[in-house]
Design a protein around this nucleic acid. Sequence first.
DNA 1: CTGAAAGCGCTTACAG
DNA 2: CTGAAAGCGCTTACAG
Lengths: 354, 354
Amino acid sequence: MAEMTIKELARICGVAVSTVSRAMNDRSDVNPETRARIRAAAEQYGYVPNGSARRLKIGSTKTISVFIQGEFGQLLVEILQLLERSFTEAGFDTTISHIADPEHANAGTVERIVREGKFGGVVFLGRYGSADREASAQLSRRLAEIDVPMVFCTTADYSGAAALHSSISVDDHAGARDLTAHLVSLGHRRIGFIGAGAEPDREHAWALRLAGYQAGLHDAGIVFDDALVIPSALEEQTYTMRNGYESMRAWLPSAPEDVTALIGVSDWTAIGASRALNEAGRSVPRDISIVGFDGLDVANYVVPPLTTIVQPVAEIAQSTARVLLATMADPGRAIEQVWIRGRLLTGESVRRLS
Amino acid sequence: MAEMTIKELARICGVAVSTVSRAMNDRSDVNPETRARIRAAAEQYGYVPNGSARRLKIGSTKTISVFIQGEFGQLLVEILQLLERSFTEAGFDTTISHIADPEHANAGTVERIVREGKFGGVVFLGRYGSADREASAQLSRRLAEIDVPMVFCTTADYSGAAALHSSISVDDHAGARDLTAHLVSLGHRRIGFIGAGAEPDREHAWALRLAGYQAGLHDAGIVFDDALVIPSALEEQTYTMRNGYESMRAWLPSAPEDVTALIGVSDWTAIGASRALNEAGRSVPRDISIVGFDGLDVANYVVPPLTTIVQPVAEIAQSTARVLLATMADPGRAIEQVWIRGRLLTGESVRRLS
DNA sequence: CTGAAAGCGCTTACAG
DNA sequence: CTGAAAGCGCTTACAG
């Protein structure tokens, strides 16, 4: 079936192409009857305006692009669906680009897509940026030079000292602090943290959560002990079940005997670590308590159900859409950093002491 | 930073736009030095060709579109990454569209995107089509009228009697049959199936897996018993952990006492069902054996690790890329239905009887 | 190897 | 309310 053009449809309808264009774009200055006739013909002949030509004319488009980095689990799917809905309601199409491997997606690719795309706005969605901080920072700075509104959702913009873009995320710091306070309230004082990254870092989720945990300890007057921080065994997989498992296995032989509770940097991490503990003959929560972070469905289904911080998915998506649309309407708008507090969900993975 | 056009760059370099175009597109008929000079200038000034203009001229594009339906777990992420890599190697860009809610994504949206996009080819990726079979079939037929090569990956095309599109998938039927044979070989004869859909169906994964299970029983001379088929409790969530859990809870009160093994329609289903069994005081595999399907990482980490069929992800992606690229090269090419055999992975969730 | 020119299919002032 | 015309930024015969 050959593609039909506006010209052919115009001839069929006996009008000028400009009239067809107006009819297809629901402009007010068309006779309702003409409009109906043209749209009926379009339907009948399967006419669809050529998007490329349209975009070429219009310049910036009614399209918002969402970039997703790496894996794409329940959390991001839920946020993406909510974003798509918001954008549709606001009259925008949503297009998605997946950056399979943030490490190898050289800045150029992303930049090229954003520049070529002529998008109305861009969302970067993805929990965790590249491990190469300098590359991330550089990309972020180059992106800032492009004249398109962008926001970062569930991920920081790594541009360095002063943020160049708005970002919306769960409050990682407060969440980890809440978890720590919860454990303390149940009598725990020797509390470990699973899944710390390698280098000093202040922007990735793991670093914020680690800092929140330290703040929680401080709140309770507990001295932070480096020996209770369990480093990630696997590069670039910080938040995975596999990393939780491997990290715990690597750490267990040298683990201080008196640890009574552990905070996983994510639910998956906690689940993987639990498995390693089980294999080592230590039962959760009898021998050791463990909590996660994110509040995935799976946290409710593992045995025992995990105590965790639930990410406020709806609020995150809402804020993201709001900030982006507002910035699109007023590009000079101030940059916002939005941190949304997660909710503590009590499972059965923590034992009350004494 | 204003967008630079080919015209401006041409003026800067002191050449004609056609020369810039040739240089940017790596055509052979340009003086290597001119080419180098132009590309350097492009880099310096951040010139990126306008994709819309390019597409408008070229007509069909060097872009392949991947449509993803619904959730997007480990399996699809892995396949998508492999597809992206194959397409890139073949010189194509990959663009992704997410159909958040296949139920509500009226055929029109998908059709519009495909028609507008002028893609070189289209992949439909997603394990499970819409529940509304008539709508699916109709969409499939309408898509067949569009003059773009398409293949279905890990999902059937639901066009009905005669397939209109090529499709590549794990061999659901053989996999379930293998699982059944495995259980039989360990002494099980009263084997149930968790996650059957509501209506008669022959195309969805659950239906194929159910049929494979029945074939496996038949192979072993075991009479199929309807009472051992556990229906899905939740609409549109067949393969989720939640559905495994809820379905098992609903079924348990009326469960025949003599069941010794269960086949989950997916790993997640098996994991959810295990949890319900645990809550009811039945331990896996001591009291009852259970197997899954898909071979997700999580299957190795639950306790006990799940026996399952591992989806041959690499082969699926490879075949999908091969079939699509071949069809793009030769649109008259015959339609292929590719079923790839999965591998049985033995965990610890099955007990040997007697 | 390079340039001038036509044209891809739209949208949008402009004139009626 | 409608039409004729210009032009968005490219690519590609065509001519040199």
